[in-house]
Nucleic acid binder design. Structure first.
Lengths: 148, 148
DNA sequence: CGTGAAATTAAGCCCCT
DNA sequence: AGGGGCTTAATTTCACG
C-alpha cells in the first residue's frame, strides 16, 4: 500500500468508470500494471466493491434523520432487527448519551414516524431521540490520506 | 422511473462492474436496452456517479465519530471551512439539540482531537459534543423502494 | 448487429535483495 | 538465483452508435 495505490483509490472514488489506461496514465503506469494493482486492492479488501452513488431524493428517500436509541440489554439479534428495516442506512454502537446511533432515510416524515415505531418493537429499546437533517452541506467518500 | 429502473439501480449498487448484458438478463431486457436505461439514469442525476467503496481501516481512518456542533451565526463560508477538513465525511444542518451534525473519520483519537480543535477555529462555533462509534453494525447504500 | 475500444491474460524484462 | 512489479502484446469481451 504505497502512494500510487492511494492515488488509484482516490481516482476510482471520483470515477470508477474510467479505463485502466487512463488510471495508469494518471499515476505514471501502464494499463496492465494499473489493472494488477487495482485487482490486488480488491483482493485484499481495501476496495470492498464498485458501486453507484444514488440521489436519495430521486428514489423517494428525501427525509434524512439520525436517531439515538437508548436501550437495556441488546439481544443477539438486534443487528438483524435493525437491518430488516430498509430505511436504516447505518447503525453503530456508540459511547455517549445513548447506546446506538442509526441513520435513517425515509420517504416522508410519516415514514420516519413508522420507522421509530418499528424501533420500539425491538426488544430492549426504551427511548429514541431524533435529529432531523434540514440541509446537507456535503456527503463524500472517505478521504485517502497521502504520504507515508 | 419504473420498477425496472429501480432494479437496475439496485443491481448496480451491489456490483457496478457487471456488464450491461448481465444487467439486462437480470431484468429481462437486451444489453442495449439496459445500457440505454442506465445512461438515462445517469443523465437525469438519479445515478450521480460510479465509485468504489473503501475499507476505512485499511486506509488509516479507523476512528469514527459524530460531532454535534453548537454555534451562533454561521458565516457564508462555514460549509467551505468544514469541507477543508478532510476527516469530515458528512456535514448537515439539523433541527434538534445542536446546529450542525458532522461525521468524522480520523486515524486515531489524537487525530480526532485535532479535528475538534480545528472546528473551534471556525467562526461562530461555541461548543461540540462528540459521539464515538465503538462498533459499526452496518453501513449500506440507500435502499431502493420497490413498487409504484 | 458491427466496429472499435477496453478488459484480461500471458510472456518476457529489469531491478532490488 | 529469485521474486515482485513493470511493459508490451495478444486474445476475448463488451460498450456503444
Amino acid at each position: 500500500m504505497d502512494d500510487i495505490d492511494r492515488m488509484l483509490i482516490g481516482l476510482l472514488q471520483e470515477d470508477a468508470t474510467q479505463s485502466y489506461a487512463a488510471l495508469g496514465a494518471a499515476v505514471g503506469l501502464s494499463s496492465g500494471a494499473a489493472h494488477e494493482r487495482v485487482r490486488k486492492l480488491r483482493e485484499r479488501g481495501v476496495i470492498r466493491r464498485t458501486t453507484v452513488d444514488v440521489d436519495p431524493v430521486a428514489v423517494g428517500r428525501g427525509v434524512l434523520a439520525y436517531v439515538m436509541v437508548d436501550g437495556t440489554t441488546w439481544m443477539g439479534d438486534t443487528r438483524q432487527a435493525l437491518s430488516a428495516i430498509p430505511e436504516i442506512e447505518e447503525a453503530h454502537v456508540i459511547a455517549g448519551p445513548a447506546s446506538l446511533l442509526i441513520k435513517v432515510r425515509a420517504a416522508t416524515t410519516q415514514d420516519l414516524q413508522a420507522v421509530l415505531r418499528r424501533l420500539f418493537d425491538i426488544n430492549g429499546v426504551t427511548r429514541t431521540q431524533t435529529i432531523v437533517a434540514l440541509e446537507t452541506f456535503f456527503e463524500r467518500p472517505v478521504h485517502i490520506p497521502t504520504g507515508p
